[in-house]
Design a binder for these strands. Structure first.
Lengths: 187, 187
DNA sequence: GTCTATATAAAGATAGAC
DNA sequence: GTCTATCTTTATATAGAC
């Protein structure tokens, strides 16, 4: 793999685990076996440029992943259930949630950098579109589909936050169990 | 006000706005007109000790605030509606959400400091207990009350995250509109 | 495109006078 | 309890050889 992609891949994981400010450039480059000089050749605008590149990679990876799951299942309910199950598995295996979330980047950087905020916003919008389209297929109105997609995103983000805080997968599991009510009773 | 309390108050606001790593000690102390020497007299263990103190202050302030709102209204549904409305108002007025959230602290620090994670966990538990108790008053079973309280917390946290990301209050408003379905149809 | 060496600024923290 | 001055480490970033 070329140097630039390598840096982006490794930095993405580290940012997701420890947040943007929680990882120093030195740490990233040490893991990559890449030097400062090489880094600034690929990212002349430094660390923030790297973050934006990572957010774009996340956008691709996350949307692809979610789309795959949503294509595998007939209904939104089944798909979202499978999705959360996967998050829970990852969390129980690795101890951290690296997929489908970038909340640390949002909460750290949204107030500090407009371009980072926009990249995050774009990502959430993409995810919600996938949900929303599936919900319309399921028979929901466009408006209702939009609202529920928004809620689902908030739900999952909040659930991940609680899992990280409690260092336990129970919150996401509970949410996964209760979500069907949301989807069924409004159809 | 005594120096220690002053530092805690100002630091709390700054941490909520910019996250823990987003604010330097220098910045905090400059706003307080307090010197390093004085700071380390009150907080021998430095910045992380200050953060813990801030989280405790938040715990008091947030629980008191939410309890007041919940005492003002008959049902959970009305209370939570008023609560979200207050969040939305604050956001529209100030541009940032400083109340009821500390997600930046969680996502930045949970993987790095166990004692910070515990303080955050305690805070979420307290909030959920308030919801849960009210829900039991409303006629829900203890188990159902617990699940719904968890969901509500996840919902609101996720909603705030989306508001910050989109720099708009729409997400929380949508959530506020749709929440009644969750509470009504399971009663 | 990659390297080493260096610059520069900011972080958190300490020492000791008052 | 508060002050100034200082220390140490780490951060991001740059210069210039190869």
């Amino acid at each position: 793999m070329d140097t630039k992609s390598l840096i982006i891949e490794i930095a993405t994981t580290l940012f997701q685990q420890k947040g943007y400010k929680g990882v120093g450039l030195n740490e990233i480059l040490k893991v990559c076996y890449v030097t400062k000089g090489s880094f600034y050749h690929h990212f002349p605008n430094g660390k923030e440029e790297l973050l934006i590149a990572c957010l774009q990679l996340m956008e691709e990876a996350i949307t692809k992943d979610i789309e795959d799951i949503f294509n595998q299942f007939q209904t939104t309910q089944e798909a979202i259930h499978a999705m959360i199950e996967k998050l829970v598995d990852d969390f129980e295996r690795e101890g951290t949630i690296t997929g489908y979330t970038f909340s640390s980047m949002v909460s750290e950087m949204a107030s500090l950098s407009e371009s980072v905020r926009n990249a995050c916003s774009s990502l959430y919008t993409k995810i919600q579109e996938i949900y929303s389209n599936k919900l319309v297929e399921d028979g929901f109105s466009k408006e209702m589909g939009y609202s529920i997609a928004l809620m689902m995103t908030a739900f999952i983000e909040g659930g991940m936050m609680l899992c990280i805080t409690q260092n336990a997968s129970a919150p996401l599991k509970t949410i996964s169990d209760v979500l069907p009510y949301l989807l069924k009773e409004n159809e």
